[in-house]
Structures are given as structure tokens and as C-alpha cells.
């Protein structure tokens, strides 16, 4: 019984911590995902180069670079939000966003904002496709009927953007030139 109580409390606290994740708002009242990262070992130019590579190579299917300067990259992108049913699920919509990256020596920052949601609907062939081309700002307050579904969308969007942020930070911390030069390890069975 004690174990059961402990498990229930643990699950409850996990749920509470999951619910606490939400977007902050910027000066204009728009949702923003904002990160400042210390990066003492990597130069500003390298950070900028890697950020451009992230947009134009790693995420080229979902991001388009809008402009860049000697210390910043601006891009637009979309990411698909999933609806999960137990272990399986399907896409439920997409969120478009503006992406801004700025680098200085020793640190960089990036943020995602201008987030618009476009719901998906299953088409006649069983594929999920956008229902409209006009997105709804994620900041909107939904009516009572759609409040639950909108909360799920916000949670999914936050989780997806947080994952995107983690991938971006990992990408900027990794030297891909050395990584590709490194030969794949071979195992010899002749000597042992």
C-alpha cells in the first residue's frame, strides 16, 4: 500500500511539473521561447557558422533563412505537433515561428516567437494536411468549448519547441567537421 501511495504521489508530482511548462511572454505580449547560452570555448564566428548550418542543412526541410549579419541569423520555420494516443498517434497541426539567433564572444542567445498554429485534418487519402493557410496566434484565449484542446496544443507546442532548443544547443556545441573526418571504428578478429 505504501508503495502504491508513493507511485501515485510520484506520478502526480510529475504531472504537476509537466503542467508548469509554459511559454513566457515578450514585451509585446507574444509567446516567446528565449534562451541565453554560455559558450566560452567556441568563437563567435564558429557559433554563427554552426547556426547557419543548423538552419540551412540540418533543418532545411522546415526552416528558411530570412537574413543574416556578422552576428545574427533570422529564419522562419514550421514544426509539426503530434496527438498521442497511448504509444501511437498522428500529426494534429503545425506551428510556424520566427527564429532569431545572436552571437557574441563567449555566449549566444536565440528565441522563437510569432507562433501561429494551423490545425491538420485527415484528407481523403488518410494523410494529415493543413486545414487552412491562415494560422491562429498561440497567445489567443480560446472559448470554453475549445479550452481543453487548446491547452493540449500549447503543451505539445512547448515540448516540441523545448526539444528543438535542446537540439540547437547540442548542434552548436558539436564540431561536425572533426566528427565527419573521424573514421568509423573497425574491429579486427585476427588479434585478441
Amino acid at each position: 500500500m505504501k508503495h502504491l501511495l508513493f507511485i501515485i504521489l510520484a506520478l502526480f508530482s510529475i504531472k504537476l511539473s509537466a503542467q508548469q511548462k509554459q511559454f513566457s511572454k515578450d514585451d509585446n505580449g507574444k509567446f516567446i521561447y528565449y534562451q541565453v547560452v554560455d559558450s566560452q570555448l567556441i568563437s563567435k564566428d564558429t557559433l554563427l557558422q554552426r547556426a547557419k548550418s543548423f538552419v540551412n542543412v540540418a533543418y532545411k526541410k522546415s526552416m528558411i533563412q530570412e537574413s543574416n549579419t556578422d552576428s545574427s541569423v533570422l529564419a522562419k520555420g514550421t514544426m509539426v505537433i503530434d496527438k498521442t494516443i497511448l504509444v501511437a498517434g498522428h500529426p494534429s497541426g503545425e506551428v510556424s515561428y520566427s527564429f532569431v539567433f545572436e552571437a557574441r564572444n563567449g555566449k549566444y542567445r536565440f528565441w522563437l516567437t510569432d507562433m501561429l498554429y494551423i490545425p491538420y485534418q485527415r484528407d481523403r487519402y488518410g494523410n494529415f494536411v493543413p486545414t487552412t493557410k491562415i494560422g491562429v496566434p498561440l497567445e489567443r484565449t480560446p472559448g470554453k468549448l475549445g479550452a481543453g484542446a487548446w491547452k493540449d496544443i500549447l503543451n505539445s507546442a512547448y515540448n516540441k519547441i523545448e526539444k528543438f532548443g535542446d537540439e540547437f544547443k547540442k548542434y552548436l556545441a558539436t564540431n561536425r567537421v572533426e566528427k565527419t573526418k573521424k573514421k568509423a571504428e573497425t574491429i579486427s578478429t585476427k588479434k585478441w
Partner: peptide, 15 residues
Amino acid sequence: YMGTFIGYEVISPVG
């Protein structure tokens, strides 16, 4: 075997 490419409406009420 696919939903037809002809027309506006489909069998599924969701569509």
C-alpha cells in the same frame, strides 16, 4: 485502392 480524386465531398464525415 484510394479515396477518389474526383469531387469535393468524401465518405468519411470528418472530411
